[in-house]
Design a protein around this nucleic acid. Structure first.
Length: 423
RNA sequence: GGAGGGAUGGCUGAGCGGUUUAAAGCGGCGGUCUUGAAAACCGUUGUAGGGCAACCUACCGGGGGUUCGAAUCCCUCUCCCUCCGCCA
């Protein structure tokens, strides 16, 4: 949610920000609604003041045993118009809320222009793309050959975009999550959190998934939703609260399942477990002051990169262009891991700085030292990493000619010392 | 599923038809004192709109109603809690 006062005072900058995202200008609509609402509010308050004054005089007159009929008649007459104005004012406020709730965040100046993912800009690369003296396979070919990845059975149970893993592949997914969580909590200062994966609508409104992107979510019949990412519960941990400056930054991490309907992705990545309705992810969320959010963004991205480096997986970091940056983000880095089976880089993490956009939606504030009032905190979120996709990357990058998979050094303690997954 | 209780300013919590411009305590901010800190004492303390200065108005979970007048009475919705039942 953007600051209405900022829009009012910077209508041109507001329209320019929308234009960068390929959206139509809205300042005229917003400013007009805002002005008429405030004008009505003033009229309403004038009428209310007169009503209160008269009502008070009635009380006094009655107490003194005097006649108050004239005053009573005046207040009666005011009643209808006050009620009408109240209803109208409420309606305008609701329209303004709806309007603002659907407007995307303002991009940072250093976000490159562009329409879609083809315009994203590579920032850096790590690791050498491995060369094989055989034709590298895709993860599902490897997994099915090992007998540890079963898409057909999963389809019988749950439909498309599900998988059943078993044996050492299932264990490796668990090992990956445990490894990531240990690094973040023991070395990076994140607090381990085990949050609900089912949340109410207001939590999703807070992080920006609602009201605009409901079709991407699974809704259960009690009206709650399954989380599409642990960003939702972790960021909402500070909703409706006022933190002190000393307790910032707050850093949370969680290993959870995530659920996505993949409504707009029909036909995309249908093979394998790259794009599933249900997947595990380790998420990082930071709550910071406005002054430190940008450096926190770099730090968080580094935390995700560190996982890939320790796993020995080659990757590149992309900064998303204006057209590809998500609704609530001011700037996003995608980390793309090299998948030999696909012979290309694929997204494995996305780290975003949201400024006060989510904080305003969920009323998350802090009290700056030495200042009287409160300010909205800044929020950031990033995957560290998508566990299912990391499993894919390990399988494809560590595959051997015979279809076995070498277990990366750092994972072996989590897998009972196992060095290689074989049939 | 059954039966109750509750929602007041950053927090706790009074108020239950017009003397409330919403007590009081805590916290926050400023000050006195102190080498510094603590304690104590004094002052101050939200959001929004309008004049844009002292001021005025609205806001006691949301909406509706009763009334000349509602934080206070009635209806309704949402949420929270307690007990019983069932259950991991």
């Amino acid at each position: 949610m953007l600051d209405l006062r900022w829009i009012r005072e910077n209508p041109d900058a507001f329209d320019a920000a929308l234009l960068r995202r390929g959206a139509e200008p809205l300042s005229a609509v917003v400013v007009e609604l805002d002005e008429s609402r405030r004008k009505l509010q003033t009229e309403l308050q004038t009428a209310q003041a007169r009503r209160n004054e008269a009502a008070k005089a009635i009380g006094k007159a009655k107490a003194a045993g005097e006649d108050a009929d004239a005053l009573i008649r005046e207040v009666s007459d005011l009643k209808a118009s006050v009620q009408e104005m109240e209803a109208s004012e409420r309606d305008m406020a609701a329209r303004m809320d709806d309007l603002l709730a659907g407007i995307p965040n303002v991009l940072k100046d250093d976000v490159p222009d562009g329409a879609d993912e083809d315009d994203n800009v590579e920032v850096r690369r790590f690791g050498d793309v491995p060369s094989f003296d055989f034709e590298p396979k895709e993860h599902y070919e490897l997994g099915e050959a090992l007998g540890m990845m079963d898409f057909e059975t999963a389809a019988k149970l749950s439909g498309s975009r599900f998988v059943v893993t078993s044996g050492q592949i299932a264990r490796m997914e668990r090992a990956l999550a445990a490894f990531m969580m240990d690094v973040h909590t023991e070395e990076k200062g994140y607090l381990e959190v085990s949050p609900p994966v089912m949340v109410r609508d207001h939590a999703l409104f807070g992080t920006g998934q609602l009201p605009k992107f409901e079709e991407d979510l699974y809704k259960v019949d009690t009206g709650s939703y399954m989380i599409p990412t642990a960003e939702v519960p972790l960021t909402n941990l500070v909703r409706d609260s006022i933190l002190s400056e000393e307790e910032l930054p707050r850093r949370f991490t969680a290993h959870t399942l995530c659920f996505r309907s993949e409504a707009g992705s029909a036909g995309k990545d249908t093979a394998g477990m790259l794009r599933q309705h249900q997947f595990a992810k380790v998420e990082m969320v930071s709550i910071t002051t406005p002054e430190t959010s940008n450096e926190e963004h770099e730090r968080m991205t580094g935390c995700a990169e560190d996982i890939l480096q320790r796993l020995g997986l080659p990757y590149r970091v992309m900064v998303l262009c204006a057209g590809d940056t998500g609704f609530g983000a001011r700037k996003t880095y995608d980390i793309e891991v090299w998948l030999p089976g696909q012979d290309r880089y694929r997204e494995i993490s996305s780290c975003s700085v949201c400024g006060d956009f989510q904080a305003r939606r969920m009323k998350a504030r802090y009290r700056p030292d030495g200042e009287k009032g409160t300010r909205f905190v800044h929020t950031l979120n990033g995957s560290g990493l998508a566990v299912g996709r990391t499993l894919i990357a390990v399988m494809e990058n560590y595959q051997q000619a015979d279809g076995s998979i070498v277990v990366p050094e750092v994972l072996r303690p989590y897998m009972g010392g196992l060095e290689k997954i074989t049939k």
